[in-house]
Nucleic acid binder design. Structure first.
Length: 824
RNA sequence: GCGGGUGUGGCGGAAUGGCAGACGCGCUUGACUUAGGAUCAAGUACCGAGAGGUGUGGAGGUUCAAGUCCUCUCACCCGCACCA
């Protein structure tokens, strides 16, 4: 018998699939479509195990859906702009474009050895002009619709990457990428107004039943909607008013001080001429110099200073001191708050520290209405006290009534606030899509006309860590003419955040070659939305939120018919080695290329899918890989043992008059079809699907002695086993399928449907329990009635013996499963 | 602090409220072999000689029956983290 030579086999079939254009698809209106997408990789140079896992999972789904009769779109591409390419240029003197394309070539080669069903004709790379042309087009459309704007803002500056970061890219005060401590910098930056979509991004989460609850909750928290009220207070001895936002208008009678963020514009005005002006300035200066983490972490002690100014509480005319404190953020709400120490823990701590009065205005059974004995703020429900005419109302009614009162008296009104901030997209780097804007001394800020896109990245660029875009030093790039007046003008030299590029790539896949529009409407209408999206949970907020925003925007400008891009989302777990994430620094990296060279792609795929369900983390095990390899070898020998005998069409599909062994074999076969189909389709439990196939192989092995008398049954088992295994380990299955006499690819074979008839059993084993403890097992007719089961149970020797001295209280019968005799 | 998740043999992991540990790894024994790190066969949660008993992080509870449902609690992991 030939040995299992995976190298030869895998190359052979990859070549065959490619020559036959097996995975090339086009719109077929009559066929149900299925858009199956895995997150495209950043071309770092080498495939890692996380990719292998991601793409192996995706390929099982794609192959299964295709064999089940769907027209499956399964594309692949490259998230090819980004910092590492530029860092490579900085450190090794390789041009980012050269570095990136070499990496893409290598990773494409590696990916192809995995035998995945990609339609490579649709490959995209975001760094290519024919792609980023349309990333720029997206910018123009957003700009036209007032969703792109420039403003000076305190932004997150990463000294390591020498660029600004989006809020989302700052993790615990540090750069998500290089872990440098992020600094605050005032810069003119471009933003996308994602906040305009906050409510819809929140509401439509409910239209996504196919998303993990966890991801939806994370997005919900990130959007952070809160309902409250905004109102203004007069400032004593000043024309200025102070506006605050609160979610607790019901506690407005408990206000004992006000707080401004240190950066609040009123600070300077209020401090001017006050005796403590100097101290205030020092304090503000110190706060501005403190990094975000140092200032906003929960465990940082609250700090503040009195401005010397007073505001007038419009509800009761009281004079309340205005403070400045580190715990109030300029960016949220109005950058100023009313402080109610009795009912807000932060205000409580601050008030205690600075001896500011505390006044209780909510009373309930479990809160002492006594400020002096309070040990923490009371934030629960209760009824209003010390609140003039509002006394006696519940917290909820209090909120409503105070809102109404403020509205009626022109003091303020109910408002909704979001935690979500606008998306900062400017990057002071070279390797990104240039922002298509021109600054003209006469016409001001002008957009590049659509017909002039793309604004090409110049090739001849010098890379140095200057904190400015290298494009700033390329005269041929920045010096241009104004599209309006034709006079000399200067280009914007910032490029776009790479998340912009990845916010619409799934649309591009629908018609990747069109040149006059980002994607063809009919193609997008056919394929979109993505039916199944698969990728790492680390993108739960960033990429997935931005992609949703873009999709809604494209829907609004009538480019797309769907409002949500991804109907179903599967977030896969990490690949671990020795309990921790594979990383160079830990030295626990297992190279996919090595594994594929040693065991083959079929083994690598099988192991990674078998070792753990997709959503969970996966512990890499070299011995586990051996096990998967052994199993494939076993299938190889097992199939070849029978292939000659079952080849050809002369074996009838005749399953009448079978022995009980043969019937059991058929039962197992059809049970496995059912199990594997359901495990793939309904639950993505590939590990249990594979174990079911292993069981089928084991059962076939035990059937050995009956095989020659039951060739129709053997043929059925062998062929079924190959089809069921083919989404997991496709190459070996193709080879064996051919050995079984088929000329057509197994990929084109319809997915089997289990026969109800074969799943009927004559006899089943049931369990006999006494008071819930298993005491015996019996084989009984599968259709035994409750009555019959009761008889059988009570007459069983074991039960009679064990219940001899006991009273039988009742008998629970679960037909086909068990009989439980309850005694006293 | 808030939100979410996970805890099951030596290991990865299975179990619509109905036989805990499927399947695989590892290990033990045997067979075939000059040999075995190949292959095949048998075994493998724990205690116990056995009958039997005990077991799903811990403590309670519901139920004829709990890994699964409820209450409390512990450990680890992830996300958010002064958002007024």
């Amino acid at each position: 018998m030939e040995r299992y030579d995976f190298k030869v086999i895998e190359e052979k079939w990859q070549k065959y699939w490619s020559q036959e254009n097996m995975f090339r698809v086009s719109e077929e209106p009559g066929k149900p479509k299925y858009y199956n997408l895995e997150m495209f990789p950043y071309p770092s140079g080498n495939l890692h195990m996380g990719h292998v896992r991601n793409y192996a999972i995706g390929d099982v789904v794609a192959r299964f859906k295709s064999m089940s009769g769907y027209n499956v779109l399964h594309p692949m591409g490259w998230d090819a702009f980004g910092l590492p390419a530029e860092n490579a240029a900085l450190h090794n003197g390789i041009h980012p474009a050269v570095w990136t394309h070499a990496n893409i070539d290598n990773m494409r080669r590696q990916l192809k050895t995995m035998g995945i069903t990609y339609d490579w004709d649709r490959e995209v790379a975001t760094c290519k002009p024919d792609y980023y042309k349309f990333t720029q087009w997206m910018f123009l459309k957003l700009y036209e619709n007032n969703l792109a704007y420039k403003k000076k803002a305190a932004v997150n500056w990463c000294p390591g990457c020498q660029t600004v970061l989006a809020n989302e890219q700052v993790v615990e005060g540090a750069c998500e990428r290089c872990e440098s401590s992020v600094e605050k910098k005032q810069l003119e930056q471009w933003f996308f107004k994602i906040t305009d979509y906050a409510q819809r991004l929140l509401d439509d989460l409910e239209k996504l039943p196919g998303w993990p609850e966890k991801v939806k909750i994370m997005q919900k928290n990130w959007i952070g909607r809160s309902e409250g009220c905004q109102f203004s207070l007069a400032i004593e001895g000043s024309e200025e008013t102070l506006t605050v936002y609160t979610t607790r208008p019901d506690t407005v009678f408990g206000v004992t001080y006000m707080v401004l963020a240190p950066e609040h514009p009123l600070v300077e005005t209020l401090a001017a001429g006050k005796p403590q002006e100097h101290e205030i300035k020092d304090f503000v200066k110190r706060m501005k110099g403190t990094s975000d983490i140092a200032r906003t972490a929960t465990d940082v002690e609250k700090e503040g200073i009195f401005t010397g100014a007073y505001a007038i509480n419009p509800m009761n005319g009281e004079r309340v001191p205005i403070w400045i404190a580190n715990y109030v953020l300029l960016e949220y709400g109005t950058g100023a708050i009313m402080a109610v120490p009795a009912h807000d823990q932060r205000d409580f701590e601050f008030a205690r520290k600075y001896d500011i009065p505390i006044r209780v205005v909510i009373k309930s059974e479990d809160s002492p209405a006594e400020a002096s004995t309070m040990t923490e703020a009371y934030t629960g429900d209760g009824c209003l006290i010390n609140s003039a005419s509002f006394d006696g109302l519940s917290v909820n009614d209090g909120k409503k009534k105070v809102n109404e009162y403020m509205k009626a008296n022109g003091i303020g009104e109910a408002t909704i606030n979001f935690r979500l901030r606008d998306w900062l997209i400017s990057r002071q780097r070279y390797w990104g899509a240039p922002i298509p804007i021109v600054y003209c001394p006469d016409c001001g800020m002008v957009t590049v006309p659509e017909k002039d896109l793309p604004v090409l990245l110049p090739e001849d660029v010098e890379f140095k860590p200057s904190g400015e875009s290298p494009l700033n030093y390329v005269e041929s790039f920045y010096s241009t003419t104004c599209p309006c007046c034709g006079g000399p003008a200067r280009r914007e030299t910032d490029t776009m955040d790479t998340f912009v590029c990845s916010s619409w790539y799934f649309d591009r896949y629908c018609s990747p070659k069109v040149a006059d529009t980002p994607f063809n409407r009919e193609a997008a209408d056919y394929w979109m939305p993505v039916d199944q999206y698969i990728g790492g949970v680390e993108h739960a907020i960033l990429h997935l939120m931005y992609a949703r925003f873009f999709t809604k925007f494209l829907y609004d400008i009538n480019m797309l018919s769907c409002e949500e891009p991804f109907t179903n989302l599967l977030t896969q777990g990490m690949v671990l080695k020795d309990g921790s994430k594979m990383s160079k620094s830990k030295g626990n990296v297992v190279s996919p290329e090595d594994i594929i060279n040693t065991y083959g792609a079929d083994t690598a795929r099988l192991f990674i899918l078998f070792a753990s369900p997709p959503e969970r983390d996966l512990e890499w095990s070299d011995q586990g890989v051996e096990g998967a390899y052994r199993f494939l070898n076993r299938v190889w020998r097992q199939v070849l043992e029978y292939s000659d005998k079952i080849k050809g069409g002369d074996i009838p599909k005749d399953y009448g008059n079978l022995s009980s062994e043969a019937r059991a074999m058929r039962y197992k076969t059809h049970y496995t079809i059912k199990k594997v189909s359901e495990d793939i389709e309904e639950r993505f439990n590939f590990n249990t699907a594979i174990s079911a196939i292993m069981e089928l192989s084991n059962t076939l092995n035990g059937f050995k002695n009956f095989a020659s008398d039951n060739l129709p049954v053997v043929k059925e088992v062998v062929e079924t086993m190959l089809i069921l295994l083919s989404p997991f380990s496709p190459h070996i299955c193709e080879e064996l399928w051919q050995a079984c006499g088929y000329n057509q690819s197994i990929y084109l074979t319809p997915w089997p449907v289990y026969e109800q008839e074969a799943l009927k059993q004559d006899e089943v084993e049931i369990v006999l329990q006494i008071s819930g403890k298993v005491r015996d097992r019996l084989t009984v007719p599968a259709d035994a009635s409750e009555e019959a089961l009761r008889e059988i149970a009570l007459n069983s020797e074991k039960i009679r013996e064990l219940t001899k001295y006991k009273n039988i209280v009742k008998i629970i019968i679960v037909p086909g499963k068990l009989v439980n005799v309850v005694t006293k």
